[in-house]
Design a binder for these strands. Sequence first.
DNA 1: GTGAAAGCGCTAACAC
DNA 2: GTGTTAGCGCTTTCAC
Lengths: 345, 345
Amino acid sequence: MASIDDVARHAGVSTATVSRVLNGKNTVSTTTAEKVLAAVNALDYVMSSSASGLASGRTKNIGVVVPELTRWYFTNVVEGIASGLLHHGYDLTVYSLRDGGSARRSVFEQSLLRQRVDAFIAISQELTNDELAKLRALNKPLVGVGGPLPGVHTLSIDDVAVSTEATQHLINLGHTRIAHISGTVEFEADFHLPTNRRSGYEAALTAAGIPIPHDLQAAADFTIPGGYGATQQLLTLGDRRPTAIFVSSDEMAIGSILAIREAGLTVGRDVSVVGIDNYELSDYFGLTTVAQYPQDQGRQAVELLMNVLQPGRPVSTNLITPLTTELLVRSSTGPAPSTDRKTRT
Amino acid sequence: MASIDDVARHAGVSTATVSRVLNGKNTVSTTTAEKVLAAVNALDYVMSSSASGLASGRTKNIGVVVPELTRWYFTNVVEGIASGLLHHGYDLTVYSLRDGGSARRSVFEQSLLRQRVDAFIAISQELTNDELAKLRALNKPLVGVGGPLPGVHTLSIDDVAVSTEATQHLINLGHTRIAHISGTVEFEADFHLPTNRRSGYEAALTAAGIPIPHDLQAAADFTIPGGYGATQQLLTLGDRRPTAIFVSSDEMAIGSILAIREAGLTVGRDVSVVGIDNYELSDYFGLTTVAQYPQDQGRQAVELLMNVLQPGRPVSTNLITPLTTELLVRSSTGPAPSTDRKTRT
DNA sequence: GTGAAAGCGCTAACAC
DNA sequence: GTGTTAGCGCTTTCAC
């Protein structure tokens, strides 16, 4: 493993010059730089991140704190981050909190403090004041993805607006008996996502003068089986069943579709379904949804960090960056059945 | 950010002693060790990984090279690795090859060489000889998960045996017209997984004296929609359609189930389906499958590495560690329809 | 059982 | 535009 001294010797320059070339300082003459680069190639030299990190205080490594790695949203954000960082020559160290309590403590009290990274990205993770304080004490840039962290620059979709849009789509199609499947309370920890999405739903109904149907509310755990079960409940209402359902996530919405099919009804005709996400299977199931783009969100988070990390780049001052979403209308939503539905059933 | 000197001063000892305590060298008296630990707590000291890494050559960080982060198998292996490493006080740096060509090159020629990690885990990744040589040149331990790498200790299920078991299950139920949906050729790069699983299928048929039905072969891309499409093809055969399908992965098998349902047939009665994996939705769909346990595989890979990394731990000598699998019989498989099926249809 | 001191391989003043 | 040199914060001989 060649060291910077080997390169310097091989190129006939000082180590300082080698360092300057490798760090892109443009105070080196083109000819010298070429000699250095030639030596670097000849020796297959790659600098030691430990040595560089110790001397400069910069590790060229970013830490990502994520609730778990196996859900669609999280993995896609992480994949986007990985892709973004690679472009900037940064590495990615992942801290999964999946194991819960003691693991979480060991991450916040040990791992994160090892000065292994230059900055952090926290994904969909409501942090305790104590944890936030620990992160801040490190005095390293921190950006959030997926929900607002107090005092932290965050990328987030507007959950309320997105839910209003989805519900409004159903209202526009003439639906009035619109059910809602939200997340169960344990997901409140993720930035009150269930509550925010319910608020958007209620706002749309209220604005349209439609009373909120309290008999048409259900909740599940953001999985396909969960959405399936919740929908089965809603379908037991017989004639009083909804003609449309706004579901808080696409995975649950796919569960709804499966339940509706199984009940012998036609999705998009007897019962319309709209979700949020544009999950990987949503297109396949013809699910109308408000799409969000987690991989782009990850890439954007990286750009945000690079702006902070690389002096000279513009730093935006507002703490919340709204993210792109888009209503994708597919076959799972259609006009409300005509009022003679009861007799047809 | 307290340094080791601060701790040493606070405890009234030398930095060498602090280092010894923190690294678990048992050449320090209990009383001194306690003083040191007290100082560490008082100052909230956590050592700098760069400094420690530079001085010792050990980073307490493991690199994972993964084809992408968004597929069930990969994310679960990575989650298992993360969990295992956390227990050992190691961090996890992820290198996703998802972006393809140039990204892959930059990973192998730059990122991996930065001496940021003590060892590597390569997941389901057939490496070129060049890449393998680069990794070996680093002289760092390397273990593979998901397929055999030449000369590398690898954790792998026996794809042939597992496929034979799945097919045998169908044969035992009396099926003889058994179709196979395999992976398309582009997945051959993952250790010839399509070929191996097909071999197991053919071996089971041959052993049972059943000729291989060449009209009942299809291939797809390991996704639900892919399996759905392949199955639709198989069902166009009318009376000559299969009574059972062995599908190379659960995701595709779920696509099969959806296609069979949509054709108005009953899964497990008209057509049986068996897959491989025990994907997160397999239970929900009642899919019979040969389960594998990617999170455990990740944890096992970590233990293997720790044995190599921490001298004194036993190092196993055989290069391939077979992994646990288990046939889970659910409702998607049932006895072959009686031969009057044609008339019933 | 403990301390002194020489690095580990870089970076960043500071000189020239 | 380039070289000299003093650290960065640890680990690890080598003494004692």
